[in-house]
Amino acid sequence: MVRLKTRYLLFELLFPDSLDLAHPHESLRQTKSKIEYRKVADAFKQAVLEHSGEQGLGSVQSSLLVKYFSPATMTGVLRVSREYYRIVQASLSYITEIDNQRVIVKIAKVSGTIKKSQQAAIAKDKAYIDIIAADTASTIGYN
């Protein structure tokens, strides 16, 4: 029996409206109202339908699933079948709004196993923490 081949897209949501020049890292990931799992999953599905139509959604529907989403870091993992991941990625790029907030969906990593995307997410968060820590240290006078 042949296994179902999938791709896991590690995504990030960035909110350009809240961009603050002094703290770009934190401010881009801050939202006005809370965005949770359900809204993201619905928005993604809607985007695929809008961009690639019924045919497109039909081809990925069985595999399309938001496996993980953390509102704290605005990071998540989306599962999609391997044949169609490019179409799905393009559909996500076309998203400009989620829950009436302007948003940029950034795909940080495409991987074949969920473990690798988890590792990438952890590495990315570590890098951000370092940047934010350095940022804070310079603002309060330690450097």
């Binding site: 350009p16 409206d17 961009l19 490019r86 179409i87 990625q89 393009a90 996500l92 790029s93 400009t96 302007r102 948003v103 940029i104 969906v105 950034k106 795909i107 940080a108």
Partner: peptide, 18 residues
Amino acid sequence: HQLANFRSPFDAINLLTV
């Protein structure tokens, strides 16, 4: 012309591939 219309290099490359 607006901030929300910028995409990351990886996503832009993918659009062009599509």
